[in-house]
């Protein structure tokens, strides 16, 4: 059992949890993920590591409430335990030798972008962060990002906070202004990662994206997480989750991620939580 030692609601739909998992914490690095199961009846879901404390033996996860499992997870509180918590899985983001990076987070993707920004900053790299959100109400991790970046740019789709526009607008402006990035790291909704990759492609800037396909075991067995990178089948759990954004077939990923959409909508209505409430 893995104890929740801290829980914080970051916005209406996004929750942070710090979990006691000493073996995972000891090894975790930016870009890796864990697989958790809330209880005996639960799904196995992958969540990218948002932070880790090698000494304290804890791993932080930040998740958006989107389906039955994240809804169920969000009802747990400090002191409660998760049934399973395994990792760290996947390859760590390759940050060695990077001198100037632009780290881009979109919405809850900021949670995953944060440890990479932090690792780059601690490595002595020049770090610009662009954090994009739909509106002011869902801005998360502003203080945290400020502490690990040289420049922090917040954008909102409606202009209610920071600059109005998409992260790609800001990225393009920064590149055009003469910033020479040797790495752009984009983590967020699939369309955002697709358009960031499109933005950097003409400039030939190395662009890494962190993919989030459907996954079960997370350790190289089920093949559910296969993605098309450069025309080849790759498995996000063992070959990724980071891939060259200029090679990823994002449209295929978007399509495959919608496989259970109808069933998920259905399960929200019939989910165990609602059944529990009805009892």
């Amino acid at each position: 059992m893995y104890k929740i030692v801290k829980k914080r609601q970051l916005n209406e739909n996004v929750v942070l949890m710090e979990i006691e998992a000493p073996f995972v914490a000891k090894k975790a690095l930016a870009g890796q993920f864990i697989i958790l199961r809330v209880d005996e009846y639960g799904e196995r879901i992958p969540l990218t590591v948002a932070d880790y404390d090698h000494e304290k033996g804890t791993v932080t996860i930040i998740f958006q409430i989107v389906g039955a499992t994240t809804k169920l997870l969000s009802t747990l509180n400090e002191g409660d335990c998760l049934k399973d918590f395994a990792g760290p899985l996947g390859k760590a983001t390759e940050l060695d030798g990077v001198k100037k990076a632009c780290v881009i987070g979109g919405g809850v993707g900021c949670a995953i972008a944060y440890p990479s920004a932090k690792a780059l900053f601690n490595n002595g790299a020049q770090v610009d962060v662009i954090a994009g959100f739909r509106n002011k109400d869902i801005v998360i991790l502003e203080e945290e990002f400020r502490a690990v970046s040289h420049n922090l740019y917040i954008t909102t789709d409606d202009g209610s906070y920071g600059e109005k526009g998409f992260v790609t607008d800001k990225l393009k402006a920064l590149i055009e202004a003469g910033n020479q990035y040797d790495l752009v790291l984009a983590i967020g909704p699939v369309p955002m990662m697709k358009f960031v990759s499109k933005t950097t492609e003409p400039y030939g800037i190395k662009t890494l994206v962190s993919l989030n396909p459907i996954m079960i075991d997370g350790s190289g067995m089920c093949g559910g997480c296969r993605v098309n990178v450069g025309g080849e089948i790759k498995f996000a759990c063992v070959d990724g989750p980071d891939f060259d954004g200029h090679q990823v077939n994002f449209d295929e990923l978007m399509r495959r991620n919608s496989a259970y959409k109808e069933q998920e909508a259905h399960s929200r209505e019939n989910c165990r939580l609602y059944r529990k409430e009805a009892e």
């Binding site: 067995m221 089920c222 093949g223 559910g224 296969r226 498995f235 399509r255 495959r256």
Partner: peptide, 22 residues
Amino acid sequence: AGLPSFMGIEGEDLIGVYSANE
């Protein structure tokens, strides 16, 4: 055993194509 093999034919990325492992 590890990662499942696929045939490498068109359409294996469609929704509804599973490996037996999955």
